[in-house]
Amino acid sequence: MVRWFWQRDKAPRRTLVLRSRGDVGDATRVDFAELAPELNTFLGQAAYLQLGYFETLTRLIRATDDLAEKEILSRAAGAALAKHHAIVAIIAAHGDRPTEVMLPFREQLDAFRRKTLGPRIAETMLAVYLTAGMLDDFYIALASSYGEIGAEVARILSEADDRHEIVGIVQATIASDEQWRSLLSMWGRRLVGDTILVARAALRPHLPGAENDRLEPVFTELMGAHARRMDAMGLAS
């Protein structure tokens, strides 16, 4: 049975750390006290997010006729599915049923994913690349709250996601018609708010002002990483 984060017993103070991929050195630490959710909440959300990435990427594979794009998207989908399976294995090893652990978050995360499905292939590709990047970063940071299990999840999420080649597809789309640049820039900006809401919901639905102040450095860093991804594609953030 999943215990929601407002139902838990008193727990040690936890620290949320945001660090660059592959960085195992010191990082700026933000003390969140008891804002981090229960372990099963964290694992269930992280596992279901990866399954959602896989589903969206699979949809894109079916939607495109370009064989090279299909191959790029298939690699990214395969990486997401492998991460999903790895986190599911951790849940099972912890003695829980993975489907039961993920189920409470299905409706919310499916709704988020539907919001990020663009009317055209290029927008959906960009959405996967940007939202998955932001949320992977967030869950890698949040993993520091859960000891050895968290460290293993962080290792899984830090593995190659094979989404970098999507950048080339987006850049080729922009080069084919300059109007795509402004359209995709606008789409990329629209994605930020909904993605940050998903990250906030992973901690607590309603945060007092003082706790919002503690969260601010983490979300500032997430948005900074988002801006760098946008810049790398030649899009204004």
Rank of each mutant, 00 (worst) to 15 (best):
L130C: 12
S74Q: 08
P217M: 04
D161L: 08
E38C: 04
A151S: 14
L35K: 03
A76N: 04
K70H: 06
T220E: 07
V101N: 03
L81V: 09
Q171F: 09
R8D: 10
A210C: 07
V192T: 11
Y53H: 13
W6P: 14
T28Q: 12
T28H: 12
M233E: 05
A199D: 00
I169K: 14
V192K: 10
R75P: 15
M1T: 13
A172R: 14
A127F: 12
G209K: 02
D231Q: 12
E159I: 08
A227H: 11
R59L: 13
S144P: 03
L135H: 07
A89R: 01
Q50F: 00
L207F: 13
G22A: 07
R155V: 08
A68Y: 15
L126M: 11
T41N: 06
D96I: 01
R106S: 04
R75F: 14
V30P: 03
A46H: 06
L51T: 06
A201T: 05
I156S: 02
H206T: 13
Q108A: 09
T220I: 08
R21K: 10
E69G: 12
T41E: 10
L117I: 15
L157A: 08
E148N: 12
S145P: 04
D161Q: 14
A68N: 14
H226S: 04
D177Y: 02
M223S: 13
D161F: 01
P205C: 04
M125L: 13
G234E: 04
E211N: 04
P205E: 02
A202H: 01
K70T: 14
G95Y: 07
R189H: 02
A68S: 15
I121Y: 11
L16N: 04
A199T: 01
R19N: 06
H164S: 11
K70G: 13
L203I: 08
L135M: 15
A143P: 02
R189E: 05
A89F: 05
V24R: 14
A141W: 09
V24N: 13
E221F: 10
L191C: 07
L73R: 08
K83F: 05
R13A: 00
R14S: 03
S185F: 08
R8S: 05
V30N: 02
I61L: 07
R97K: 02
R229S: 14
L73P: 03
M223K: 08
D9T: 05
E148S: 14
A151N: 15
A68I: 12
E100N: 09
D31Y: 03
L184C: 00
D31S: 10
L81T: 05
